[in-house]
Simulated scan of single mutants.
Amino acid sequence: MRIVSLVPHATEICFALGLGDQVVGVTHECDWPPDAADAAAVTRDLLEPGLSAAQIDAAVKEITGEGKAIYELDEQLLAELEPDLILTQALCPVCAVSYDDVVSVAGKIKSKPEVIALDPHTFGETMVDIRTVAQATGAEREALTLIATQRARVDAVEAAVADRPMIGAVAIEWLDPVFIGGHWTPQLIEIAGGVDLLGMPGEPSPQSSWDAVREAEPQVIFVMPCGIDAAGALEAAEQHRDELASTGARKIVAIDGSATFSRPGPRLVDGLEIIAHVLHPDVLPTAPGPALELEL
């Protein structure tokens, strides 16, 4: 089978299921695992480089408000790859090529590929996506193993924090303007022994304000800008030091939104373990990724 993945988390699922040698096309943002770089990149970013957070937000709103996507698909290259399966999504217009555009282009390709959209809203639905990809590719056995491994890690976190006090937290996935983490993120915080004070499980990430964050009185703030790694998140937090300090939170931690929260793939469980480590380091003394505390 020849697979083209038009969304990073689908690429990660494919490789986790042992399908990496069948992935012939990916997006320009598919950077995990490293072997994904061996596949042809069939998209490019339409946003100008070097924009500030506020400028990115404005540009995205303008482009998506016109019914367009911020990524461009190389239709000729996609056709040349002759895929049997195209994996995409329709959940977020900021995260991938327009689903309607993909379906339209796929209909013109000689190989007549099947198009599957992965659109999880909750943590449970991200596990369902693993099964969906497995069923389309004949990797059901591998999916059972992967899901069992993921479930065991989740169970271990739940057991570790079961007797710990719940800690009020806010997850910020963009800082200018403020957006609060939605969809699966509030669930991850709850499983990790916290209470998400502003996010709603299964709901889109809402635009908010610093006043709302202050009024929530969080004990911990997670800074996890969408598409940005932990070092970049810490830099963004530094730029908003005064606003973050004004919330009264006792701990402000920058984590890798790109790898472990923005993408609803297998590494969400890494994100869960990182959150649990930050909230309850006494019972979870290590984490599978960086958690960089902003010194106030």
Rank of each mutant, 00 (worst) to 15 (best):
L272R: 06
D256H: 02
T88N: 05
L234S: 00
G257R: 01
P281E: 05
Y99T: 02
P206M: 07
V102E: 00
V154Y: 03
A291I: 00
P281H: 08
I189G: 02
W210E: 00
S209E: 07
E295D: 15
K108F: 05
G181P: 09
G248E: 04
A117T: 04
F261K: 02
H277V: 12
A230W: 01
A40W: 01
A40H: 10
A233H: 04
V7T: 00
E203L: 08
E238C: 09
D270M: 01
G248Q: 12
Q187A: 14
R2D: 12
S52K: 09
V253Q: 07
L197P: 03
A231E: 14
T145D: 14
T145Q: 10
P83V: 05
A139K: 12
C30I: 14
P201M: 09
A148G: 12
E82T: 12
D270W: 08
E66R: 15
G202Y: 02
T122F: 09
R153D: 06
P225A: 06
M224F: 08
T185G: 02
G202M: 04
D84M: 08
S209G: 10
V128D: 15
P8H: 10
A10P: 06
V253T: 14
E125R: 13
G138E: 10
W184L: 00
T185Q: 08
S205N: 13
T64I: 05
A231K: 13
P218D: 08
P281F: 06
A159E: 13
P266I: 09
V170I: 05
Q150K: 14
V7K: 01
E203K: 15
A245Y: 07
A156W: 04
G271H: 11
E273Y: 00
L268H: 05
V60M: 12
E66P: 00
M1N: 13
Y71G: 03
A156S: 11
I56V: 15
T137I: 13
D45E: 11
S209N: 12
R153P: 02
L85F: 02
E82C: 12
Q187N: 05
I180P: 02
G232F: 04
V26L: 07
L51W: 08
D74F: 08
I180V: 15
M224D: 03
A58H: 07
C95S: 14
S209D: 08
S52L: 08
V161F: 01
F222K: 01
I255M: 15
G227I: 11
I56A: 11
V7E: 01
V161L: 09
S246E: 15
A245G: 02
P218H: 11
T185Y: 03
T286L: 13
A237Q: 07
Q135P: 00
A53F: 15
P206I: 05
L198D: 06
P93R: 08
I109G: 06
T122W: 12
V105E: 00
G50L: 04
A136T: 00
H28F: 12
V220W: 05
T122P: 03
G124F: 11
V60D: 03
L87V: 04
F261C: 04
D242C: 04
H280T: 10
I147V: 15
F179I: 10
C30V: 06
P225E: 02
W32T: 08
V220I: 15
D270S: 03
